[in-house]
Design a protein around this nucleic acid. Structure first.
Lengths: 142, 142
DNA sequence: CAGCATCCACGTTGATACTG
DNA sequence: CAGTATCAACGTGGATGCTG
């Protein structure tokens, strides 16, 4: 089931300037997607919509703690990038359904690779943090 | 070369509360790593250290535009999580070498999955943005 | 129901100056 | 060389009130 991939990570063979310039870093499409993935709500919304399409308030109720403003903003961003589709039914009052696009669906796979890694190494990270933090608090003598 | 994986993305089968509570979202180790991956410098530093270990100022020169403060902060964060190792040579003045740990190296694979996805679909995203933006500016009539 | 507009708090990042 | 300390700017996210 788990193919233990042994090749060289492609990030290591990517062509980077030396030094990496500020513009290169800022204009890089990867940087761009990483920012999106790192924001507070995008991934959660993508995952939820990956399970089933939902209307605006349905989504709002699915996520405790998200403000209306941020739900709107995040959905607009995802829609703009083509990851999410927005369809308005001309009922009164209006009904709007959000769904994952094919592009958005394809993002779930690399996303899963990342979340699987976290679940596998989460314990190591916690241990490392524990060690690091305890070394500072008790005297941090050389 | 490219194994077209057809299984169900594991993020979709992950157990989530309904609604997802604020605490669940905040305490989730995945959320945590996503924030790190989404910050401005972490991934770049991980990739650079994945190519070769470097000293502090070496790293500083490798990345145009990063401030000394942010380089320090980012390295501390990566070290705390156990992704990067820091070794001090007792020379005068001190020499400090940073390197990717085994854990950090293992992160390069899921990271590559993500960056590969971006390189493959970058064009789609750009097109979608173009369409979205032009629809708003020219009159956005119904 | 599905938003937008406004104002505000906070966290992240950057600039600058200084140190073992 | 490899940092720390302080202050300032900016962007993200939240609260509240209003609307087609």
């Amino acid at each position: 089931m788990l193919a233990t991939y042994t090749g060289v990570p492609t990030v290591l063979s990517a062509d980077l300037g030396s030094p990496v310039t500020a513009v290169e870093h800022e204009d890089c499409p990867v940087t761009d997607v990483l920012r999106r993935v790192g924001d507070k709500w995008s991934v959660l919304i993508v995952v939820l919509l990956g399970r089933s399409p939902r209307r605006f308030n349905e989504l709002h109720r699915s996520i405790e703690g998200i403000s209306q403003r941020m739900l709107t903003r995040t959905l607009r961003g995802l829609e703009r990038d083509g990851l999410v589709t927005r369809s308005v039914q001309p009922t009164v009052p209006a009904t709007v359904e959000y769904a994952l696009s094919e592009l958005g669906g394809s993002l779930l796979l690399p996303l899963s690779a990342l979340t699987d890694w976290v679940m596998a190494h989460n314990g190591d990270i916690a241990l490392s943090r524990g060690r690091y933090d305890s070394q500072r608090e008790d005297g941090h003598m050389s």
